[in-house]
Simulated scan of single mutants.
Amino acid sequence: MTELVRQFADDPYRAHVPLGAFDGDALVGIAELEWERDDQARTAYLEMLGVVPERRREGIGSALLERAERIARDAGRPTLVLAADHPADAGSDGDEVLHAPQGDATIPAGDPPARFAVARGYALGQLDRVSVLDAAARADEFRSRLDGLAASARYRVRTWVDHAPDDLLDSLAVAHERMSVDAPSGAIDYELERWDADRVRDDERRTAAMGRTTLTAAAVAPDDTVAGFTVLSLPAGSPAVEQWDTIVLAAHRGHRLGMRLKLENLVLLEATDATRERVYTWNADENEHMLAINIDLGFRPFALESVWQRP
């Protein structure tokens, strides 16, 4: 609950609109709508849409979606993107399946979230693979693997917990901004997020207020600017870790920085909180390079996430 309260607190960069469906005093459905506070932005994202199991097929989800669409239009965001989760092994031989425009993964056309989205005019724009890594007591293994990455030795790696070094703030903001549009996006209209040093600090404060610990490893180029970074987010009171953004800027690719950064942050993870057992990550199904790194590290399939947009 602390996370939700803090997430919906006043945010100067991103609007958050929580929606709830009530039957009397009982909350039976929820949705969360977000968009960039940028006059040029035209897309809103429905980050969450759910109805309690015993109240499904009563039109509650449809009512929440319709309200979200209306709010987004009124806010000048006519394009709405929504997401849904599916088991990694959903479907069987003979099932009709849906393909995203890019990548090889599929989901059953008969999955309830897929039927819900298609019936309301949304098209499947991307599939993300959700993967999990058993990370407990593996720091020595990760350190050993780091020793074999001398090809990227001209880049320094700096790590920190929660608070980025002042001297990296400006170039770290550039890397965050590129992350918003450089990651594979399939047919989804992800829009540019405008970042500067103030937004980096605001994001740190907001995340800390949610009770999370944030671990970052950044590659620093010879000109002392951030060439790439990766972030692990540790929710309070959980054995799990979420892999957040990972990016290597285009000019610095080809030096195995992605693998090096992830290994450095996994070593930092055990040094910071050895009780954490698992790391979850989300990757576009067409992002072959990052998926190869994760498979090499030992990530295994956990689920699929579908992303939809009304054409």
Score class of each variant (00 low, 15 high):
residue 235 P to H: 11
residue 249 L to I: 06
residue 158 R to F: 09
residue 145 R to S: 04
residue 284 A to D: 15
residue 150 A to P: 01
residue 11 D to M: 01
residue 304 L to W: 03
residue 196 D to C: 14
residue 76 G to T: 02
residue 151 A to D: 15
residue 25 D to L: 10
residue 150 A to M: 05
residue 188 I to M: 09
residue 40 Q to A: 10
residue 165 P to R: 09
residue 111 D to C: 02
residue 297 L to G: 10
residue 187 A to D: 12
residue 274 A to W: 01
residue 244 W to L: 08
residue 302 F to E: 13
residue 130 V to G: 11
residue 152 S to W: 04
residue 26 A to K: 15
residue 225 T to W: 00
residue 276 R to I: 10
residue 55 R to L: 13
residue 43 T to E: 01
residue 291 L to R: 14
residue 106 T to S: 12
residue 198 D to G: 14
residue 255 H to T: 10
residue 36 E to N: 11
residue 27 L to D: 09
residue 305 E to C: 01
residue 43 T to N: 00
residue 182 D to E: 15
residue 170 D to C: 04
residue 14 R to Q: 14
residue 14 R to V: 12
residue 15 A to V: 12
residue 86 H to K: 08
residue 112 P to Y: 00
residue 132 V to C: 10
residue 112 P to N: 00
residue 107 I to E: 03
residue 146 L to D: 09
residue 123 A to W: 04
residue 308 W to Q: 01
residue 242 E to D: 10
residue 64 L to F: 08
residue 64 L to A: 07
residue 31 A to Q: 04
residue 84 A to Y: 02
residue 5 V to A: 06
residue 64 L to N: 06
residue 242 E to Q: 07
residue 74 D to C: 01
residue 42 R to T: 12
residue 140 D to G: 13
residue 194 R to T: 14
residue 9 A to V: 06
residue 289 H to L: 07
residue 243 Q to K: 10
residue 36 E to T: 07
residue 61 G to E: 03
residue 144 S to P: 01
residue 203 D to K: 14
residue 65 L to K: 04
residue 233 S to C: 07
residue 10 D to M: 07
residue 268 L to G: 06
residue 251 A to D: 15
residue 5 V to T: 05
residue 114 A to Q: 00
residue 247 I to T: 06
residue 147 D to Q: 15
residue 165 P to V: 08
residue 255 H to Q: 13
residue 85 D to G: 14
residue 3 E to A: 11
residue 243 Q to I: 09
residue 30 I to G: 13
residue 298 G to N: 11
residue 286 E to D: 15
residue 232 L to N: 13
residue 81 V to W: 10
residue 301 P to Y: 11
residue 237 G to C: 12
residue 116 F to S: 08
residue 236 A to P: 02
residue 157 V to P: 03
residue 302 F to Q: 12
residue 271 A to G: 02
residue 56 R to M: 07
residue 5 V to I: 07
residue 192 L to I: 00
residue 209 A to V: 03
residue 49 L to S: 03
residue 68 A to H: 08
residue 264 E to H: 14
residue 143 R to V: 07
residue 56 R to I: 08
residue 207 T to G: 11
residue 8 F to E: 13
residue 89 D to T: 14
residue 13 Y to G: 06
residue 304 L to Q: 11
residue 72 A to G: 00
residue 110 G to F: 08
residue 211 G to E: 06
residue 86 H to L: 15
residue 153 A to M: 01
residue 273 D to H: 11
residue 245 D to T: 04
residue 16 H to W: 08
residue 164 A to W: 02
residue 51 V to E: 01
residue 138 R to D: 06
residue 266 L to C: 11
residue 285 D to T: 09
residue 193 E to Q: 09
residue 110 G to I: 05
residue 185 S to A: 15
residue 290 M to A: 12
residue 263 L to K: 05
residue 147 D to V: 09
residue 1 M to G: 12
residue 4 L to A: 09
residue 248 V to E: 02
residue 55 R to K: 14
residue 276 R to T: 11
residue 178 R to F: 14
residue 302 F to H: 14
residue 90 A to C: 06
residue 42 R to E: 06
residue 265 N to F: 11
residue 301 P to K: 09
residue 149 L to D: 07
residue 153 A to K: 05
residue 35 W to Y: 10
residue 186 G to R: 01
residue 199 R to V: 08
residue 56 R to G: 05
residue 218 A to Y: 04
residue 78 P to I: 05
residue 283 N to K: 12
residue 160 W to Q: 09
residue 40 Q to I: 00
residue 165 P to G: 08
residue 42 R to K: 05
residue 58 E to D: 07
residue 106 T to A: 10
residue 124 L to T: 08
residue 60 I to L: 02
